[in-house]
């Protein structure tokens, strides 16, 4: 179980006292996170500027990279883990993701539908004003 020394909730103290812990273990976690985040960020900027990728697929690629980077930040920086002390945090996170999903998708679907039904009107059609 020595590998799970970072299995603690956000804001929680490490399970092993600082005096008995190797100074490098926490540093390794943060540095791994930084490297992964840098790789994902650079890839995002590359994907947005390149012509190698099929253009209609670029937004989906960017979305995947962003979600991956959010996962990296959650695990390596915020220390959201599957540890017992973190159960409540994970449940709260799941609920938060549900609400965010409802707000985003609900707004976009409703407004897109509204625009479609008003496609012949000249006013109120915010998405068609160019």
């Amino acid at each position: 179980m020595t590998d799970t020394r970072w299995d603690v909730a956000p804001g929680d103290l490490p399970a092993i006292p600082a005096s008995e812990r190797k100074a490098s273990s926490g540093l390794l976690v943060y540095t791994t996170g930084l490297l992964l985040a840098v790789i994902l960020t650079v890839t995002s900027f590359w994907v947005a500027n390149t012509t190698v990728i099929w253009a209609p697929g670029v937004p989906a690629g960017l979305a995947v990279l962003a979600i991956a980077q959010m996962g990296v930040h959650l695990v390596f920086f915020l220390h959201i883990t599957t540890g017992p002390d973190s159960t409540n945090n994970v449940l709260a996170l799941a609920f938060g993701v549900l609400i965010v999903f409802l707000v985003l998708v609900g707004s976009l679907v409703i407004m897109a539908n509204l625009n479609e039904n008003m496609a012949h009107g000249e006013m109120m059609n915010v998405q068609m004003q160019r």
Partner: peptide
Amino acid sequence: IVAGFGFW
């Protein structure tokens, strides 16, 4: 743990 959870 409680404080961390509340802030989360």
